[in-house]
Nucleic acid binder design. Structure first.
Length: 493
RNA sequence: GCCGCCUUAGCUCAGUAGGUUAGAGCGCUUGAUUGUGGAUCAAGAGGUCCCCCGUUCGAACCGGGGAGGCGGUACCA
């Protein structure tokens, strides 16, 4: 067989875990970001932008023993052999920025930041390798006042994003009361660090696996549905019992005040007491705390590494079904907390900081499910181009509409009448402006209401009728273009 | 990372127990219905049957390896 000369033809494909996004989705994201940013700015946070790449050592993601960055971050070497990585969150770049510009910044320093972050992980449903975060942080303010503000801000921001206060709440805990728990079960020794990690990871799964699953993970280990086995922490029954009662102290399972329950379990431990005081402080410095969608819940763990005090998590509570009818759990759409050690890596001095991070992509997905059958985004008014030598007049019409604040474009594709309407249809144009020879000689235009037409067409079988009646269009004098279009648009909101 | 399932047209999927030209529906393109979206009708384009290696006279189909997708699990700043 004669070999065919193969011309290399790359396969057109988006990289795994990444997405192309278009039109309506981008617009609603932009609007959501604008609403969130407005809330941040109203609270006095200044915008900050930092680059996508940071030196890897600044991100703190070198593996401890190998001279290579953590696998979870996308990394490359600069031409001077220094490792750089795409940022995996907005907090590490903030710490770098604050350390680098420490002396010139007002303290406390309050900034918000919006942008994409990248994680080199296995993508999953609703989980991508590039996604947008929207953070606000206060650097240089000790607990608990800034923490209280962050809780309230968090709730305001999620609400501003478009989630009603019945559909989410901010769960608040404190890393220090977890330390108190470790004291209580005598796991606070130097040698128990590894076990503590395992215990926290298990606790973090409380909402997903429930008490039984967590009990297994705390004890002998657990075999999951795929047959994979996860090693347990190896605690004895009594300690497991203590941990579970701690987790179950949350508001769902207890009629009593969560803080009272925690105090009963941990009150006699040093860290527990400090942690509790901070939570009480948050409650005391937030006005109308009880009426806000904020509650204390000890099963909130968040990241294992850098949080040092209060931790927050925004959780959506409404249920939705995916396109195959299966229930979708949205879970966390943002998190945050106090991290007093982050700037210390650069400066040596401890700089207290607290912040929140809102996951825009997840919120958007959730909102899509929430507004089932969301009204499709409306396209531009399309001015048809029927007479090729009259393009200038069509452009004039479009410009008139734009000047009147109406999104409008001229059809530029060079096809016939039917194709042009088909194009307008596909663009979700609400209105087509038509001026062919007939209208022109009479000094008129035809306004076609495409939304109404689509509705009427459902009841029409016969093509002749469909074509001749044209109930969805009317003529107007050329000079009345803007008024006629606006009037038609107003019919459909 | 680990376990399981899957991969045939743009999409959803048939199909042949290995045999020449691989199919459907939807979508797309073009045209008809005198200058009108839908419906109808006619024609058309579009496939290395995921990739590589092997077995075979012959592989989209069988075997091995790989990649990608889905689901679970682990990790998660």
């Amino acid at each position: 067989m004669a070999k065919k000369q193969k011309i290399f033809k790359p396969k057109a494909r988006v990289p795994r875990g990444f997405r192309d996004r278009l039109g309506a989705e981008l617009i609603s994201e932009r609007e959501m970001l604008a609403r969130i940013s407005a809330v941040y700015e109203a609270h006095g946070f200044d915008p900050l932008e930092t680059p996508a790449l940071e030196y890897t050592d600044a991100l703190g993601k070198f593996l401890p023993d190998v001279d290579r960055p953590n696998e979870g971050v996308f990394s490359l070497t600069d031409d001077d052999d220094q490792w750089m990585s795409l940022r995996y969150d907005l907090t590490a770049p903030l710490a770098r920025f604050v350390a680098e510009n420490y002396d010139g910044l007002p303290k406390p320093f309050r900034r918000y930041q919006v942008g994409p972050v990248w994680r080199n992980e296995k993508p999953g449903p609703g989980r991508f390798r590039q996604f947008t975060q929207c953070d606000a942080d206060t650097v240089g303010a000790p607990a608990p006042y800034a923490d209280a503000e962050m809780c309230m801000l968090f709730a305001d921001v999620i609400e501003a994003a478009g989630i009603s206060t019945d559909d989410f709440f901010i769960r608040v805990s404190n890393r220090k009361i977890v330390d108190g728990l470790f004291e209580k079960i005598a796991l606070d020794g130097e040698a128990d660090a590894q076990t503590r990690l395992t215990v926290m990871r298990s606790m973090d799964k409380f909402d997903r696996l429930g008490a039984e699953g967590v009990a297994l993970l705390l004890g002998p280990g657990r075999k999951d549905a795929s047959g994979d086995f996860t090693d347990g922490a190896g605690l004895d029954d009594q300690r497991i019992e203590t941990v579970l009662s701690f987790l179950a102290s949350g508001p769902e399972s207890s009629k009593r005040d969560t803080l009272d329950v925690i105090a009963e379990i941990l009150g006699d431990t040093k860290s527990g007491e400090v942690g509790l005081d901070e939570l009480i402080g948050i409650k005391a410095s937030a006005p109308d705390f009880e009426t806000r969608p904020i509650l204390f819940d000890c099963s909130v763990i968040r990241g294992l590494e850098y949080y040092t005090g209060p931790v927050f998590e925004a959780e959506l509570t409404f249920e939705a079904k995916d396109d195959k009818g299966r229930p979708v759990q949205f879970g966390s759409v943002g998190g945050g907390g106090r991290y007093d050690g982050l700037v210390k890596r650069f400066k040596g001095v401890e700089v207290p900081a607290v912040g929140i991070s809102v996951g825009i992509s997840r919120l958007l997905t959730a909102l899509e499910y929430k507004q089932e059958a969301a009204p499709a985004a409306q396209g531009p008014v399309v001015v048809l181009a029927l007479e090729k030598d009259r393009m200038a007049t069509y452009q004039t019409m479009a410009a008139e509409l734009r000047n009147a604040g109406v999104r409008a474009e001229v059809y530029l594709g060079g096809s016939n009448f039917a194709k042009q309407l088909k194009y307008a249809d596909k663009r979700a144009a609400p209105v087509a402006v038509i001026q062919g020879e007939d209208e022109r000689t009479k000094g008129e235009i035809t306004i076609k209401d495409l939304v109404l037409g689509a509705a009427l067409s459902k009841n029409i079988e016969d093509n002749k009728e469909w074509r001749e009646d044209q109930p969805a269009q009317f003529t107007a004098p050329r000079s009345g273009l803007v008024d006629a279009v606006k009037k038609t648009l107003a019919r459909h909101g």
